[in-house]
């Protein structure tokens, strides 16, 4: 084709490269979104202070924050899952522990994954979990029940005026891992 001059082909090549780059950009949005959530605390991200650092902090005994515990079970998961304690009054800076209890209602082993979120959104980065059952997958055998601990510290820098913080978990069935388990049997 006489139209396919070098300059035309150069333009077309540049534009094709741009299209490929934008396909990559679509995938780049995944880590970007993750980073954005980490910085802003949206999408259920919470503070990530490690235990040692957090323990060395000062305890603000003058302030009391009520922590409300909440649990939801996804409809695909045949479990009961609830907090042992609905409310807890805590001092910022002090380490606390509470437990959730999970019970596998089915007659086969199931692996589940809990996903946390904190409300209100502005409190999420000041709510640090030092240990949580949501950090790993949870396996319960048929009819098995287990207490699952959460340890947390409310950061003393929690904005003034926030006196109630809700920690909420949704627990999902991990289909892939459960299927692997069933196949191994």
């Amino acid at each position: 084709m006489s139209n396919s001059t070098p300059s035309t082909l150069r333009t077309a090549g540049t534009l094709a490269a741009l299209a490929v780059a934008m396909f990559g950009f679509g995938y780049l949005l995944v880590p970007l979104y993750d980073k954005f959530c980490e910085i802003t605390g949206i999408g259920g991200r919470t503070g990530d202070a490690v235990a040692v650092e957090a323990l060395s902090g000062e305890i603000d005994t003058s302030r009391v924050v009520t922590v409300h515990f909440d649990a939801t079970v996804n409809s695909a998961l045949p479990w009961r899952f609830e907090p042992t304690q609905r409310m807890m009054d805590v001092h910022p800076g002090k380490l606390y522990e509470t437990k959730y209890v999970a019970y596998n209602l089915s007659n086969r082993p199931v692996i589940a994954q809990a996903v946390p979120s904190v409300a209100p959104g502005r409190a999420s980065l000041f709510f640090n979990k030092t240990e949580c059952f949501c950090f790993t997958e949870q396996l319960l055998g048929p009819g098995e029940s287990r207490d699952m601990p959460v340890r947390f510290i409310v950061d003393p820098n929690l904005p003034q005026g926030t006196s109630l913080v809700t920690l909420s978990y949704i627990i999902y069935k991990n289909d892939a891992a459960t299927a692997v388990l069933a196949a191994a049997d």
Binding site: L18, A19, I170, A176
Partner: peptide, 29 residues
């Protein structure tokens, strides 16, 4: 050219989530 490839990426992620076990949009994963 700027956005059709992004749609292609999004639906490819749906495809791998549905059929190839990735968890781009799957909260459980």
């Amino acid at each position: 050219i700027a956005v059709m490839p992004v749609l292609a990426g999004a639906v490819t992620m749906l495809l791998t989530d549905r059929f190839f076990g990735t968890s781009f949009f799957n909260a459980a994963g």
